[in-house]
Amino acid sequence: MAKYINPYTDFGFKKLFGEEANKDLLIDFLNQLLPAHHQIADLNFRNVENLADLSAERKAIFDIHCKALSGERFIVEMQKAKVKYFKDRSLFYVTFPIRDQAQTGEWNFRLEPIYFVAVLDFEYDEAEEKRKFRRDVALKDQDGDLFFDKLHFKFLQMPLFNKKENELETKFDKWCYFLKNLESFDHIPNILNEPIFQKAFETAELAGLSAEQRAIYEENLIQYWGMKSAIETAMETAVEENKVEIAKRMILAGSDDNFINQMTDLSVDYIKKLRAELKK
Score class of each variant (00 low, 15 high):
Lys84Cys: 10
Gln142Ile: 08
Leu91Glu: 10
Ser90Asp: 04
Glu72His: 07
Leu156Met: 12
Val83Phe: 13
Phe109Ala: 11
Leu120Pro: 00
Phe148Leu: 04
Lys87Ser: 12
Ile98Gln: 02
Val76Lys: 00
Arg99Thr: 05
Glu123Asn: 07
Lys132Tyr: 11
Lys140Thr: 14
Val137Pro: 02
Phe116Arg: 01
Leu139Thr: 10
Glu126Met: 13
Lys87Cys: 12
Arg134Ala: 07
Lys140Ile: 12
Ala81Ser: 13
Asp141Asn: 14
Phe116His: 08
Pro97Leu: 13
Met158Leu: 14
Val94Thr: 08
Phe96Trp: 01
Leu111Lys: 10
Val119Leu: 07
Ala118Trp: 11
Pro159Ala: 02
Arg73Asn: 14
Pro159Met: 03
Lys154Gly: 11
Arg110Ile: 08
Lys140Pro: 07
Leu156Gln: 05
Ala118Gly: 11
Trp107Pro: 15
Arg73His: 07
Glu72Asn: 06
Gln103Phe: 15
Phe122Met: 15
Glu128Cys: 07
Glu112His: 09
Asp88Ser: 10
Lys132Glu: 04
Arg131Phe: 06
Arg99Gly: 05
Tyr85Ala: 09
Arg134Phe: 07
Asp141Gly: 12
Tyr93Thr: 07
Pro97Glu: 06
Lys82Arg: 14
Glu77Gln: 13
Glu106Ser: 14
Phe96His: 03
Leu156Lys: 02
Gln101Pro: 13
Leu146Ala: 10
Phe74Cys: 15
Ala127Asn: 05
Asp125Val: 10
Lys80Asp: 07
